[in-house]
Design a binder for these strands. Structure first.
Length: 412
RNA sequence: CGGGAGAUGGCAGAGCGGUUGAAUGCACUGGUCUUGAAAACCAGCGAGGGUCAUACCUCCGGGAGUUCGAAUCUCCCUCUCCCGGCCA
């Protein structure tokens, strides 16, 4: 959630920055107005409450001493009506405030370039040259080695589900294990968490209330399938105050991810690029504010090095304001080269949400005497399915066979 | 799915409807003592808002009610635990 105080104190700057994310100034203005009104009403209410409290205490004393209570009682009753009235006003304002605030995305970091959509993202670095082929490389959905079975996925569930078989299934498992081990060596502690979470958890990381349509909900249960491990892993620390000396906390987690892909109709309908269920190894960090930039870079390097170790050509891309996700202040995507498709495609996305999620999820740390909000970061180590097909396309031979990258051989 | 119990500060655990934001113990922090540590002793120690700082307000799972006054009484919801059934 947005820091309302920032909005009150430095309205113009916040407006300017949020323009990058297409937030209307009127909305922010409304939010500010309500917040100030709320503050004012609350002060009046609190004064009334203070008076009421003091008199109620007196009442007890008078009653014990046998003094006259009748007039005091009348006074209290009268005052009570006023308190109740004001209280409902304050409550209404509070509800209005949170409902608007919940719709406002995080403030982009100053380093985020302006831009409308993914076409305005900025390439920062190219790593490894794309492999060259002396034949025309196929796209993964045209490869006929029996690893991927799209029809079976449809039979079992519906479109955008895929069944794996033989070495395809095995490679998928190898990738998961390899990545977890790789991340562990980089200081990320492995965790394992539920794939089903409640509403509070999804609110903590910002998927709810705004993006309910993108989630698979369990009928009649108020529970949802997780769209990414970021959700449960970050929320491990929801409502907690962490000891300063425990930070930064760096975690890695394998999970299945479930997304409705609402609004993606017609995009990437072929192959295994965009699925309703996919495997992913995730990185999540919780840091002090002054550590988050360093850990962010650390996470980007970790994912990039992972790709390098797999021999996959890729590039780092800095997302522009318009392409930035709801909770992110800053995001770097890693895009891997797909020779069959002849283009780079996202395989990892690493974001610093600063204190945006921490404010919602109430994740704090003790800074001496004071409790302060932490920074939370998340990023794919790599999406397993996309890594699998990246290997298929990059390591394909003319005879249709696929070479296994050296580092994975021990895991097969 | 059937039967029972419960939800209070980091944990454990008190709390006749009125100076209880909450006893006590543990943990934690600071100090004394010690070459150092432990022990002992002294002190501090929930969260959010508000303020320059106080004051002050809110919070004892969540919501509604009774009352001048609710952690304490009533109702609803949620969750947890135990017993039984089912089961990886």
């Amino acid at each position: 959630m947005l820091d309302i105080k920032l909005l009150q104190n430095d309205f113009d700057t916040i407006c300017e920055k949020l323009r990058k994310k297409k937030v209307k100034e009127e909305t922010l203005d409304e939010l500010k107005t309500i917040s100030l009104e709320l503050k004012k009403e609350k002060k009046v209410l609190e004064e009334l409450q203070a008076e009421q409290n003091a008199k109620s205490k007196l009442f007890g004393v008078y009653a014990r001493e046998g003094k006259d209570i009748v007039s005091l009682k009348a006074e209290l009753s009268q005052n009570k009506t006023k308190v109740l009235e004001l209280n409902s006003i304050v409550k209404t304002l509070e509800e209005k405030l949170t409902s608007i605030a919940n719709e406002i995305p995080n403030i982009p970091d100053d380093s985020v370039p302006d831009g409308k959509d993914e076409n305005d993202n900025v390439e920062i670095e190219l790593i490894l040259a794309p492999a060259t082929f002396d034949f025309t490389p196929k796209e993964h959905w045209d490869m006929d080695n029996g690893w991927l079975d799209f029809e079976k996925g449809v039979k079992l569930a519906k479109s955008r589900f895929t069944a794996l078989r033989g070495d395809g299934a095995k490679l998928s498992r190898a990738l998961i294990n390899y990545m977890l081990d790789f991340n562990a060596k980089r200081g990320f502690c492995e965790v394992s968490v539920p794939y089903i979470v409640n509403r509070e958890t999804l609110e903590g990381t910002g998927q709810l209330p705004k993006f309910e349509d993108d989630l698979f909900k369990i009928d009649g249960e108020n529970l949802f399938l997780i769209p990414t491990a970021e959700v449960p892993v970050t929320n491990l620390f929801r409502d907690e105050i962490i000891n300063e000396n425990e930070l930064p906390i760096k975690m890695t987690c394998y999970s299945e991810c479930f997304r409705k892909e609402a609004g993606s109709a017609g995009r990437d309908t072929r192959g295994m690029i965009r699925q309703h269920q996919f495997s992913k190894v995730e990185l999540v960090s919780i840091t002090k504010p002054d550590q988050s930039e360093e850990v962010f870079k650390d996470m980007v390097e970790c994912a990039s090095d992972l790709l390098t170790s797999l021999g996959l050509a890729h590039r780092k891309v800095m997302l522009c304001g318009g392409d930035l996700g709801f909770s992110a202040a800053k995001t770097i995507d890693l895009e891997v080269w797909f020779p069959g498709q002849n283009r780079y495609r996202e395989i990892s996305s690493i974001s610093n949400t600063m204190d945006f999620q921490a404010r919602r999820a109430k994740i704090r740390y003790k800074d001496g005497k004071k409790n302060r909000l932490v920074h939370t970061l998340n990023g794919s180590s790599l999406a397993i399915g996309r890594t699998l097909i990246a290997i298929m396309e990059n390591y394909q031979k003319e005879d249709g066979s696929i070479e296994i990258p050296e580092v994975l051989k021990a895991y097969m």
